[in-house]
């Protein structure tokens, strides 16, 4: 089985998501990588160490900004040229759009959120936890090319050594695919203690109700000797810094204790914190998805519970 794996890069490194998918592809068959955009040619050979037998690279100027549509043009041409059985992507903001655009362009089936892939009786099968991870589904494809998005963090890159031959390829951009342009890009610098090293994390979401309510969490975190984290919803709303975001597009954390206050528990948040030792959730909605994967779930108002808990922790620690 021949796999084409989209290897997204940022700066001078290939992203882990793509490399993880590459390792799985190499374990199941022939793994061919593709790197697109500025710096692609220099980064492409490095994919050999993670399982690629060959890597295609293009630095076409249309691929310079990290936008999906010209990447669909490039991959569509490459799929026609190489006829892979499957095309794999590590989930990311960019890769998801590339994968879905490619599905429409090639009339190819796309399965997303896969946590694993296997070959069963000669057929590719994807493992997908669905409906908020309440059911595990085995998914397949009717024919090639089979497109798949792998859930972030699900497959770790495997360093196997080895080199890859690099080849360039040609494609044409569609008239509409360069209409969207990148105006500005901000790199967010992190300041303060890193949440990745904390033993205790107190995380807050939109249930806090207002940005200043984060002080409630800061006080609890202080009492516990921990750090404060946040969901994308509140980071995007400007309530708390980007560097504290946990989840698919944020950080992956694994503290001993994770207290989630006013967080619904979306999959994209879960993938960043499910490795925590103990998860305590406070949410006033008994149907919140977070209650499906926490260790201690408390149905209640965080505005009442958190300050009380802070007092109790202080008293306990003082004694």
């Amino acid at each position: 089985m021949k796999f084409l794996v989209f290897l997204e890069h940022h700066g001078d490194a290939l992203e882990k998501g793509g490399l993880g998918a590459l390792g799985k592809a190499a374990a199941l068959g022939e793994a061919v990588g593709v790197v697109l955009g500025e710096g692609a040619s220099a980064l492409a050979p490095g994919a050999g160490a993670f399982g690629a037998s060959k890597v295609f690279a293009s630095e076409d100027p249309a691929l310079a900004p990290p936008l999906p549509q010209p990447r669909v043009d490039a991959l569509a041409a490459l799929v026609v040229q190489e006829s892979p059985d499957a095309v794999l992507f590590g989930a990311s903001v960019l890769s998801a759009d590339v994968a879905a655009g490619l599905a429409a362009r090639l009339e190819a089936g796309l399965n997303w959120d896969l946590t694993d892939l296997e070959v069963r009786d000669g057929e590719l099968v994807g493992k997908r936890p669905a409906l908020g991870d309440t059911v595990m589904v085995d998914v397949g494809w009717t024919d090639a090319p089979r497109l798949a998005l792998v859930r972030s963090g699900a497959l770790d890159p495997v360093e196997s050594g080895g080199g890859a031959e690099v080849e360039s390829f040609e494609f044409e951009t569609s008239d509409f695919s360069t209409l969207a342009t990148l105006v500005e890009q901000t790199q967010e610098e992190s300041t303060g203690p890193s949440i990745e090293d904390a033993d205790v994390i107190v995380a807050g979401g939109r249930g806090l109700g207002a940005p200043d309510k984060f002080t409630l969490l800061e006080e609890l975190a202080n009492a516990l000797g921990g750090a404060v984290a946040a969901t994308r919803a509140v980071v995007d709303a400007g309530w708390y810094p980007y560097a504290t975001q946990v989840g698919q597009t944020g950080k992956t954390v694994s503290p001993k204790l994770y207290i989630a206050a006013g967080i619904s528990g979306a999959i994209q948040h879960k993938v960043g914190m499910q490795g925590s030792g103990t998860i305590v959730a406070i949410n006033k909605d008994p149907n919140a998805p977070i209650f499906d994967f926490c260790d201690l779930g408390v149905v209640g108002d965080l505005h009442e519970i958190v300050p009380k808990l802070t007092e109790l922790v202080r008293a306990q620690r003082g004694s």
Binding site: V137, V139, W141, G300
Partner: peptide
């Protein structure tokens, strides 16, 4: 459709969880 659902299985197992309702003593 070019994708298929082959089989349904139980979700990956996880440890026991406790759920309580706040009656003033949750903290």
């Amino acid at each position: 459709a070019k994708t298929t659902v082959l089989e349904l299985g139980p979700p990956p197992s996880r440890g026991d969880s406790v759920k309580i309702e706040d009656d003033g003593s949750a903290a």
